[in-house]
């Protein structure tokens, strides 16, 4: 019999949140006085369902990752969503919902992730079609092939449940997603090394890094490899940390000066915010993996519970 998961609903934390007693940082709620984790914010399949019908990927990348959702159709859905769940706006629900990077272990459907990957592919096409095209370093990475590989992997992952022996498929997929994460991260570094940084491509690749990393952790949860999920999340964080230390906000601004001197600082601040959000979400995954393992919950049951949730777009897993 599956172990019960002691999820709470966000509304239970709203008073504390409203009074400043707790704050969201990435995928955790933390006590502002003690700094301790109060709970893990976990998205559910319902959030994905709500977004899927109206989701459109912004080709400029400006709202494609974490920025405020500007698409009127989505905004109206979220407005309705906020009304149903109370005062979640203070939890920055709009920002959370606009991302498919995953709050907690991602509950985004394969269709949604593939949709986002198409958007990243579109960005690559756009840059390649420009007069100066791709620099050699970026071309050598073969990002289009990488995206194709990730797409194939995700489709195989999605169909794994239909197989008599799905585990080898999922293990293989997890390995390929690991590779995809690293290659897309190389792509981010290559874009940042370009004389003129293309911010749309950069944001798309960051989204891709986030998607691959999230899908890899999800595969490990499916395999119930929770200790490995914890370690892998730590390794993902280390790689993102190394990138962050190379490109703080002022360095990004300096790099953007040649492409867009007027808005270089504002654009750099927005990019830094994206990176910070990804950092924060990945940073929370080791603790979440550890918490789920500590509860004795099977990783697959955890994923099932999230996908079957029909009332709450977000759940809170108490830290203790």
């Amino acid at each position: 019999m599956p172990v019960a998961i002691p999820f709470a609903i966000p509304a239970e934390h709203m008073l504390n949140f409203a009074t400043g007693g707790v704050q969201r940082y990435g995928a955790i709620l933390k006590d502002t006085t003690t700094g301790k984790i109060v709970g893990h914010v976990q998205e559910t399949g319902l959030l994905g369902d709500l977004l899927q019908t109206g989701l459109s990927f912004d080709p400029t990348g400006a709202t494609g990752l974490i920025g405020v959702v500007q698409n009127a159709q989505i905004s109206s859905k979220l407005t309705a969503l906020q009304q149903t769940v109370g005062t979640l706006q203070s939890l920055q629900l709009v920002n959370i919902a606009s991302s498919v990077a995953g709050i907690g272990v991602t509950a985004a459907s394969t269709a949604m992730i593939l949709h986002r990957l198409d958007g990243i592919g579109g960005q690559i096409n756009r840059v390649e079609a420009k007069m100066d095209g791709f620099p050699d370093r970026l071309r050598e990475l073969g990002l289009r092939d990488v995206l194709t590989g990730i797409r194939t992997t995700l489709e195989r992952l999605d169909n794994a449940a239909n197989r008599l022996d799905p585990e080898p498929v999922v293990r293989n997929a997890e390995e390929k997603l690991h590779y995809g994460f690293d290659k897309l991260l190389d792509g981010v570094q290559a874009v940042l090394a370009m004389p003129k940084v293309d911010t749309g491509l950069l944001r798309s690749l960051l989204a891709g890094v986030s998607l691959c990393g999230a899908a890899q952790i999800k595969a490990l949860f499916w395999l119930n490899e929770l200790a490995e999920a914890e370690q892998q999340a730590k390794r993902q964080f280390q790689k993102i940390e190394a990138l962050s230390l190379r490109f703080p906000q002022d360095v990004l601004a300096h790099k953007l000066m040649s492409a867009d001197p007027g808005d270089a600082f504002a654009t750099a601040a927005a990019l830094s915010d994206d990176m910070a959000e990804i950092r924060a979400r990945v940073a929370a995954l080791p603790a979440l993996s550890n918490r789920v393992a500590g509860l004795g919950v099977h990783g697959r049951d955890y994923l099932e519970r999230l996908s079957q949730e029909e009332e709450q777009p977000l759940l809170i897993l108490p830290a203790h």
């Binding site: 940390e241 950092r279 929370a284």
Partner: peptide, 10 residues
């Protein structure tokens, strides 16, 4: 909290 969260914050 785990060290990753502290590292991310700083």
């Amino acid at each position: 909290m785990t060290q990753e969260i502290f590292r991310a914050e700083v």
